[in-house]
Amino acid sequence: MNIKISLASLLLITLQLNAFNALAETAEEKGLAIAVESDKRETGFTDSTAKMTMELRNKQGDTSVRHIRIKSLEVEGDGDKSMSIFDQPADVKGTAFLTFSHAQQADEQWLYLPSIKRVKRINSKNKSGPFMGSEFAYEDIASQEVEKYTYKYLRDETLNGIDCFVIERIPAYEHSGYTRQIGWINKAEYRPEQIVFYDRKNSLLKTLSYNGYQKYLGQYWRADQLSMVNHQTEKSTTLKWSDYKFKTGLTDTDFSRNSLKRAK
């Protein structure tokens, strides 16, 4: 996180300078400052494990469920490492995704298929594709690094009684499925409450809502429930999180090529 900390201190200096002339802070600088503060409040969790239930609902209301376990490792000076292990549906049990996210370069991702014991490298171009048939794209579930977007502060707004900054962020990486995202960031806690996604044609595509926030280790906010509604297809996906554990002692060994094969 060295890069981010220095960015943050730079911003701090900028903000202090701006204190003398508040008008000098542009909307872009304020948007970035909010993103940097959000990221700063996430720093230091070291590692975490959690269980996730993914409920997929189609237009007719039929549902199907996936059970996934997720492990994350904070990496200093770069994006986080994460591993997703599937328990259900039963035919993909043991399938695992390993992701090394990077702030500047493209993320690296591998998929392990247990039935044929094969580890496949995934082309990182595939960002906009659906994750396991859900309304979440690969880029939505990837680690959200500050450098992945450019920002612009739009306005202050109250959302469901919560005072929020409304910021626009535009993907700075290639192959995104979005032209822009509008985020409602809780002013007090600097955590996202809602994100609205616009597709490549700049049409309204999806809304992601964060519900049931809980504080862990007295510092880190995690939502129990994330709901993604696709306005174009009327399909939705809800992620229900449980069993969050932090600082469990995970190391690089738990996020390696070998660990993929024994992830189940």
């Binding site: 082309n123 171009k125 595939n126 906009s128 594709g129 659906p130 192959h175 499925g177």
Partner: peptide, 12 residues
């Protein structure tokens, strides 16, 4: 060579 999101949908 993979064409992602063909026919404007989710298929690859």
């Amino acid at each position: 060579y993979t064409l992602y999101g063909i026919f404007g949908g989710d298929s690859d």
